[in-house]
Design a protein around this nucleic acid. Structure first.
Length: 413
RNA sequence: CGGGGUUUGGCGCAGUUGGUAGCGCGCGCGCUUUGGGAGCGUGAGGUCAUCAGUUCGAGUCUGAUAACCCCGACCA
């Protein structure tokens, strides 16, 4: 990408109505644009970053045997009537509207009903199970109060995986596989060391659900963390009785603010029963499908990463999710030509800061603000010995790298 | 949804006792600069959130509405 050609320019000042560091930096860097409270556009850099986060998650979901689909955001009323969740008293975050042709519909806040009903057409035998289906989809929640930039919004991206198992035992085994998968995902996303599996309140079929909570000052949850055992407890189930049950020693727990970046949930028959999702077992008997749901909010995760990993100079993206890997600044005429060639070789890896009217100081400042993992400076000075400068965003030291070595790196992941 | 606050050029802000709007950044043009957000000159850009009042006259006073922010509540 050439910086001279992107419409999303960086700014020195952040809008006055944003409080969280992540939102300020993402807006200053031209990653996102605010439409209204809790509703943000993803601009070219923001979209690439979000896509990269989603791709990491996608790879791990596929590794679990997940089949990716895309359900609709518009949801008909009837399936939700069956589960009892159409009523605003039950689920108060609905955005609902009327069809001109008659009837009511809602904008999906979640998709248990939709998946359950859709799969009723495809699941009939025990041979069809277990089944794991997931999607990335925009969710809508009519929150009374949006907060913290893209961390709590009314429209956001969600990965939701649903498992359909024959028995609770089969479900439990998969549930643990997802837990391991989530740990791997948050490691890959660069927030693994501060993200903890956290006991939270369950539903009608299990005492607990598991949340993945990332330590974060602007998070909305309070968790109690046992660092030795590497598990935490959400404030909502923080009672002596439950601590006993989990074998946790109250004196060893640290209290932290945290942001929920994922959750896994045993649903049991909660939806398969009212929506009649059944299969025929080996003995020819009808059985209900045992379900689970597993969410990660990629857009919130992006906010959490921005919040946690950024420094006073700007964003800091882990390599795997950065929108581009290299930020190239050229100083001198010959250097400009070489930078142009390099960019043409690897336009998907390089941001070439080719702005004619920007000074070098501004380019360095933007390289930092945008959080690109490596800054490459090509100057006539270093070209005299066929070298370029390379500096990691997370380090202060600049190293010299032979130009041929840098070219060899391009194209590698 | 309760309490509190804010709203003035693209962004950040100032605007006194009511007298017809200004600064910085950014943007255009010119010259000089050029390894950490340049300097000088010059220019463009505003129904002061909206509506209704008070007044000879409203960015400023009054009322209503809206949007946004914070605290709380909420968060299948």
């Amino acid at each position: 990408m050439k910086l001279s050609q992107t419409f999303a320019k960086t700014t020195k000042t952040a809008p006055g109505d944003e409080v969280s560091e992540s939102a300020k930096l993402l807006i200053r860097g031209g990653y996102i644009y605010k439409e209204m409270a809790g509703v943000y556009d993803y601009l070219p850099l923001g979209m690439r970053t979000l896509d990269n986060i989603m791709q990491v998650i996608r790879e791990e979901m596929n590794a679990l045997g997940g089949q990716e689909v895309r359900m609709t955001a518009l949801q008909p009323r009837d399936a939700w009537e069956k589960s009892g969740r159409w009523d605003d008293k039950v689920l108060d975050v609905w955005f609902k509207t009327k069809l001109n042709a008659g009837g009511e519909l809602g904008f999906a806040t979640t998709h248990e009903e939709a998946f359950t009903r859709m799969l009723k057409s495809y699941i009939s035998s025990y041979k069809d199970l277990p089944l794991y289906v997931y999607q990335f989809q925009t969710k809508f929640r009519n929150e009374l109060r949006a907060k913290s930039g893209i961390m709590r919004t009314r429209e956001f991206m969600m990965k939701d995986l649903y498992s359909f198992s024959r028995t609770k035992e089969e479900h439990d085994a998969f549930y643990e596989k997802v837990a391991a998968s989530y740990t791997k995902i948050f490691n890959r996303l660069g927030i693994g060391t501060d993200t903890f599996r956290t006991f939270a309140s369950g539903g009608s079929f299990s005492k607990f659900s598991d949340e993945y909570q990332t330590l974060c000052e602007v998070g909305e949850d309070i968790i109690y963390l046992d660092r030795e055992k590497n598990i935490a407890v959400n404030e909502e189930v923080y009672t002596d009785e439950i601590l006993n049950e989990l074998g946790l020693d109250k004196s060893k727990l640290e209290q932290h603010k945290a942001a929920e970046v994922g959750n896994i949930f045993t649903l049991g028959y909660k939806y398969s029963e009212p929506l009649e999702l059944e299969y025929t077992d080996e003995d020819g008997k009808r059985q209900k499908v045992f379900m689970g749901s597993y969410g990660i909010g990629p857009s919130r995760v992006m906010g959490v990463i921005a919040e946690k990993l950024s420094d006073e100079k700007g964003l800091v993206w882990p390599e795997e999710i950065a929108p581009y890997k290299y930020y190239v600044v050229a100083i001198g005429d010959k250097a400009m030509e070489i930078a142009e060639d390099l960019h043409n070789k690897a336009p998907e890896q390089i941001i070439f800061d080719d702005r004619a009217n920007a000074r070098n100081g501004e380019k360095f400042a933007d390289a930092d603000l945008l959080g690109i993992p490596y800054r490459i400076v090509i100057s006539d000075k270093t070209l005299a010995e066929d070298k370029v400068e390379i500096k990691k965003r997370t380090e202060t030291e600049t190293k010299l790298l032979p130009l041929t070595e840098f070219i060899a790196k391009l194209g590698q992941k």
